[in-house]
């Protein structure tokens, strides 16, 4: 069985072409980064605002906890059934899926950013203001840099959530590595399923690793010990 999986993975024919591994890998990455970008676009400013002002923090805490309980597969199906009649062509699969990916990624990013800003030492914030920093300078020079470790862990767990849900979304016709898992099952081809599963696992590990590297580069070593 393992040798069959190996054969599938090493067969060049499986890698090339419009439905090959390379193409699906690129699709998976594109969808994932698009979703993360959109989620961050909404969640980062909101998290900064809530962390900075303390307003609405009850919402964040409950949102992050509550969203973990929501089964992504069910939400995905609901989104598709609701939107499918209103869309046509490829958008019919892509739009509902991306919406779900974004919605599921918002809570972890939001709570990471919020918690990051909120845990900044009040004395440091006070000193920043006392030295004559404007509100914007306090945010960009003190609060955000100090919040980066937690912002990163929010982004990383959002990205893992996105990659996993994008895999599942193959069942509603979305492209990406999930195709091999779902199509393989439809044709009872375990080699294809397992090969695809290995690729998905590898993708998740690699992306997380890269995020970890980026975090090391971006986060000040002065914060490392507090982590």
């Amino acid at each position: 069985m393992i040798s069959l999986v190996g054969e599938w993975l090493t067969d060049p024919a499986n890698w090339s072409g419009a439905r090959g591994i390379w193409a699906q890998l690129v699709t998976h990455l594109q969808l994932s980064f698009l979703a993360l970008f959109l989620a961050a676009l909404i969640a980062v400013p909101l998290g900064l605002y809530i962390g900075h002002t303390g307003r609405g923090r009850v919402v964040v805490v409950n949102l992050a906890g509550g969203f973990r309980a929501v089964p992504s597969l069910g939400v995905l199906f609901i989104a598709v059934l609701l939107l499918l009649p209103r869309l046509s062509g490829e958008a019919a699969f892509v739009v509902p899926s991306v919406i779900v990916l974004v919605v599921l990624a918002i809570p972890p990013v939001l709570s990471g950013v919020y918690a990051g800003v909120q845990q900044v030492d009040p004395a440091a914030r006070d000193a920043a203001r006392g030295m004559g920093m404007t509100g914007g300078q306090v945010l960009t020079q003190v609060e955000i840099p100090c919040a980066l470790p937690l912002i990163f862990s929010g982004l990383r767990s959002a990205m893992l959530q996105i990659i996993a849900t994008a895999t599942i979304a193959a069942v509603v016709g979305l492209g990406g590595l999930g195709r091999f898992l779902i199509d393989g099952q439809a044709t009872r081809d375990y080699a294809e399923m397992a090969g695809g599963a290995l690729l998905v696992a590898g993708l998740a590990l690699t992306v997380d690793f890269v995020f970890g590297l980026a975090q090391r580069l971006v986060v000040s070593p002065g914060l490392a010990r507090a982590e």
Binding site: A123, G130, M131, V219
Partner: peptide, 23 residues
């Protein structure tokens, strides 16, 4: 303007309030 004023006044707060992410 408060920010201008503060830049001309040295301020030492009780627990130092150093920025942990800066040398």
């Amino acid at each position: 303007a408060p920010a201008e004023l503060r830049r001309g006044i040295g301020y030492v707060i009780q627990h130092a309030g150093l920025f942990p992410h800066r040398t």
